[in-house]
């Protein structure tokens, strides 16, 4: 394995949690719901996954409980913004703060513990492809799940009827309601899907990526996932590209630190976040405005009957 292949391998691993969380948020936003609570849902996913995996000594149990935690957080958010038509930005910020705080409380007994390494599942033949084979096809199963999610969501949105209905609800909920589409019901499903994904992304962090729990370990990855959705112009395939770009920034700054690049390490550590801001600024200059944003994004819907 060459150094290049090793770096590529870590880039894919670093991109995976961003990608999973971004795909979930993308589905919620395509349905018209802006959930800024990704960071909180992810943190809850990470801590519950680690706690469960540690207690039952099972990575699978950890993953399932992490997803459940993310899903429950999303359900709470759905109750506020869909059930009671609360302001989505406010409720999302509250969800993040709540999730970060609660996860610290739940995780306190587990600080300092570690989990064993998750086995990779190399795929025969494909993993032998020169240069990229090792990075893409000798990964842990969750990486494959992430790729599958991108393909599945892309197909669902573009080709299926339910996907079409979900998009139309996000585009114009008044029209969708007038046509008789179940606006609130589909939004609840989309938000909970987003929560399950954020929980899974959190589980990946604590069970595969770091293999320990520490408070605030999500370190803004939930926010990057939210930014990725904008970067991707609400298209799943572009979310994949974006996640790899940010994953690359994360990994390269580590290597830059190791290579003793004469810059403060804090500045290098901030590189992925600076890259996020730069990408968003450049995109908005190029497009002039947020092209592709679902028309009803962020606006509460109250059906009149």
């Amino acid at each position: 394995m060459t150094t290049f292949e090793a770096i590529l391998f870590t880039i894919v691993a670093a991109s995976t949690p961003l990608l999973i969380a971004a795909i979930g948020e993308l589905v919620a936003e395509r349905a018209g719901v802006l959930n800024l609570g990704v960071e909180g849902m992810m943190s809850m996913g990470a801590v519950c996954a680690f706690a469960a995996a540690f207690t039952f000594d099972s990575t699978l149990a950890g993953i399932l409980l992490g997803m459940t935690a993310g899903g429950l957080m999303a359900a709470l958010f759905a109750l506020a913004v869909l059930g009671f038509a609360a302001n989505q930005v406010g409720a999302g910020l509250a969800l993040t703060i709540f999730g970060l705080g609660l996860s610290g409380l739940i995780g306190a007994p587990f600080v300092g513990q570690t989990r064993p390494r998750v086995e990779e599942w190399p795929i025969p033949i494909l993993s032998e492809i020169p240069l990229v084979g090792h990075a893409l096809f000798s990964q842990d199963p969750l990486v494959y799940v992430a790729f599958g999610l991108v393909a599945g969501v892309a197909f669902f949105l573009a080709r299926t009827r339910t996907g079409l209905r979900l998009r139309s609800i996000g585009e114009n909920h008044v029209s969708a309601h007038a046509l008789g589409l179940p606006v609130l019901k589909m939004r609840v499903y989309a938000v909970i899907f987003g929560g399950l994904c954020a929980g899974l992304a959190g589980a990946y962090l604590s069970l595969v990526y770091t293999r320990f729990w520490s408070p605030n370990m999500t370190a803004g990855r939930g926010w990057i996932a939210v930014a990725l959705v904008v970067f991707a112009a609400w298209r799943p395939m572009w979310a994949l590209v974006g996640a790899l770009v940010f994953g690359t920034a994360t990994v390269l700054q580590l290597h830059a630190q190791a290579a003793q690049v004469p810059l403060p390490s804090q500045l290098l550590a901030a590189a992925p976040y600076i890259a996020t801001i730069l990408a968003l600024v450049l995109l908005s200059i190029r497009r002039g405005r947020a092209v592709g944003a679902p028309g009803s994004l962020g606006t509460p819907f109250v059906p009149d009957r």
Binding site: R159, S168, A176, A178, L179
Partner: peptide, 28 residues
């Protein structure tokens, strides 16, 4: 059937998608 005053159409979607979304199960 209903033709709305303020059209119940989806600006960013195509004509065919706009029609398909309102119809019962049918292949695209």
């Amino acid at each position: 059937g209903m033709v709305f005053q303020h059209f119940s159409l989806f600006e960013e979607m195509t004509v065919a998608e706009n029609v398909a979304v309102a119809l019962p199960e049918r292949a695209f």
